[in-house]
Amino acid sequence: MTKRTKINIVLLICVILLILIPFVFVKGEYGGSDDQGTAQIKKFAPNYKVWARPVWTPPSGEIESLLFTLQGSLGTGVICYLIGVAHGKKKALQNKDKHRSSK
């Protein structure tokens, strides 16, 4: 096994542990920050009146989750694309420098 393969395996194990450890050791409910924020507002300012309403509310929780996942996936795609472009530019520059130095 190459050194790079070993590093990749160790990183993969770390990612799996980071995902599984909270499910094993954290007891309680997993709620969103919106729920926690609303609870705090109700606790400290019970007379607070909401002044903003959503333009559109998804018809169900499943649709809301789908849209949230889609948004995250698109964002990840854009970030990965930009990283790939930067990597390609760097590699092209290195190849150009190698070509110049070989002359």
Rank of each mutant, 00 (worst) to 15 (best):
L66H: 15
K91A: 08
A92M: 01
I83A: 06
K96N: 08
L67R: 10
G75S: 11
G72S: 07
L12P: 00
K89V: 10
A52P: 02
Q94S: 10
N95Q: 10
E64A: 11
F23N: 01
T38D: 10
K6V: 03
G61T: 13
V10T: 07
P59V: 03
Q71L: 07
L74N: 01
T2P: 04
V50F: 01
E64D: 06
K96H: 10
C80N: 06
Y81Q: 09
W56H: 14
G31F: 05
N47T: 12
L82K: 06
K89R: 07
T2A: 09
P59D: 10
S65K: 03
R100T: 13
N95D: 06
L17F: 05
R100C: 06
A52Q: 12
G72H: 13
V15F: 14
N47Y: 10
Y48R: 13
R53C: 07
V10N: 15
F44H: 13
Q40N: 11
Y48S: 09
L11R: 15
G88Y: 09
Q36N: 02
V24H: 01
G37M: 02
K89D: 08
N47P: 06
T5V: 04
A92I: 04
K89L: 15
L11T: 09
L12C: 05
L11P: 00
Q71Y: 10
C80I: 14
K6T: 04
R4C: 01
K3C: 09
W51V: 13
G32F: 08
G61Y: 12
F68Y: 09
G28C: 03
V24Q: 02
K98D: 06
W56A: 07
G31K: 11
L93N: 09
S101C: 02
A39H: 08
T5P: 00
H99D: 12
Y30R: 09
F68P: 00
P22I: 07
N95Y: 10
K103I: 04
F23I: 00
G84R: 04
L93I: 08
C14P: 00
I63P: 06
R53W: 12
L82W: 11
Y48C: 05
T57Y: 04
E29C: 00
K91V: 11
N47L: 03
R100V: 13
D35C: 07
E29A: 03
E64I: 04
K103D: 08
M1I: 07
T69F: 15
S33W: 09
G61M: 11
G77L: 05
R100I: 06
T5R: 11
I21C: 01
S101N: 05
N47A: 05
M1L: 05
K42M: 05
G31M: 05
V55F: 12
T5E: 09
T57G: 00
R100A: 09
T38N: 12
L20K: 06
L11W: 14
P46S: 04
Q40T: 12
V26Q: 10
R4P: 00
K89E: 08
G32K: 02
T2N: 13
L74Q: 07
P54F: 06
A92N: 02
I16W: 04
N47H: 10
A39S: 08
G32P: 02
D35Y: 15
K42R: 14
T38P: 01
L12Y: 12
I9P: 08
A52I: 13
P58I: 06
I83M: 09
C80A: 14
I83N: 01
S102G: 03
I19W: 03
K91N: 05
H99I: 03
E64Q: 10
K49P: 02
T38S: 01
R4L: 02
G31S: 07
I63R: 04
F23G: 00
E29Q: 14
